[in-house]
Write a protein that binds this DNA or RNA. Structure first.
Ligand SMILES: [Mn+2]
Ligand SMILES: [Mn+2]
Ligand SMILES: [Zn+2]
Ligand SMILES: [Zn+2]
Lengths: 141, 141
DNA sequence: GTTATAATTAGAATTATTCTAATTATTGAT
DNA sequence: ATCAATAATTAGAATAATTCTAATTATAAC
């Protein structure tokens, strides 16, 4: 319920927004703090509900606008699985996702540098990749 | 323009549909043959256009219905990238996808058994995965 | 052939997301 | 502080991919 950004997170937000010529607004701050606050990969709808605890007048359009800005600034990752609504993740280090088909839970799987190298080895000569998405589906015992 | 299934493909289709209690119809056969005919990961709209060369009266709803059946029968893979329209792929062996951000082309990257093993190693204990999606974005020189 | 069931079809409905146009907030001069 | 310019937010309309509905057509079993 208490969505206040830590000083270091606020600084990071200010800096990243400023670099793109964007302002720090309370809407962007609350959306960012909600995403940082619970690492459960919420959808825009869920983010709307959580931000409204602190900012009851925020609109869904603004949540989408804020998310676009945060993704643009590389403060947040947009995660798409199959055709379900986009989810948002504050984990900026390269990682894969695991979606439990029973509980629906989405878990980050961190990748070691060596594992990333192995993934890149999948690419034949002439294929230059800037990013990848790796998602596992299964069950979590 | 000539979408006729090879005898072996027709047999595969018949068998897979029958196993799920589904009939072989000309709509399903043409949709399947279009997907087999050009390995470019077409969308439902593109499949509609191609099938209509042979079957001018087929509807988009039927294309979606046929695709659902074919995916259900594991004759075709549904490939989702970000939030763009689903694409369909006849390559049933485990593979990754590369999407060229310049040309839009989507290429299959086959995976060796050893590479699949390495991917599975990403999963911590207790995570049991039935399938994975791996997509690279980048440019193709 | 009749009847039951399955598949197809056109068009309506749904859902996530984006767009539009109006309002409000912020900035940076005066 | 006032003003003007610009940016951000907002409600609601629009869009686009997909799914649903209800009617029609095709197929299979008797
Ligand atoms: Mn959403
Ligand atoms: Mn499509
Ligand atoms: Zn994540
Ligand atoms: Zn493929």
């Amino acid at each position: 319920m208490n969505f206040k950004l830590k000083a270091s997170d606020k600084e990071k937000l200010d800096k990243a927004l400023a670099k793109k010529g964007l302002r720090t607004t309370k809407q962007r701050s609350f959306v960012y703090s909600v995403i940082l606050g619970k690492r459960d990969h919420p959808t825009a709808d869920e983010i709307l509900l959580r931000v409204r605890n602190s900012l009851p007048s925020i609109s869904l359009a603004t949540v989408y606008n804020c998310l676009e800005s945060l993704v643009e600034c590389a403060l947040v990752r947009q995660v798409n699985m199959d055709r379900s609504p986009s989810r948002f993740c504050p984990n900026l280090s390269p990682h894969a996702h695991f979606k439990c088909t029973k509980s629906g839970k989405i878990v980050d799987l961190s990748l070691k540098e060596s594992q990333i190298k192995l993934l890149k080895k999948i690419l034949p000569k002439g294929f230059v990749s800037s990013n990848f998405d790796l998602t596992f589906n299964g069950t979590l015992r």
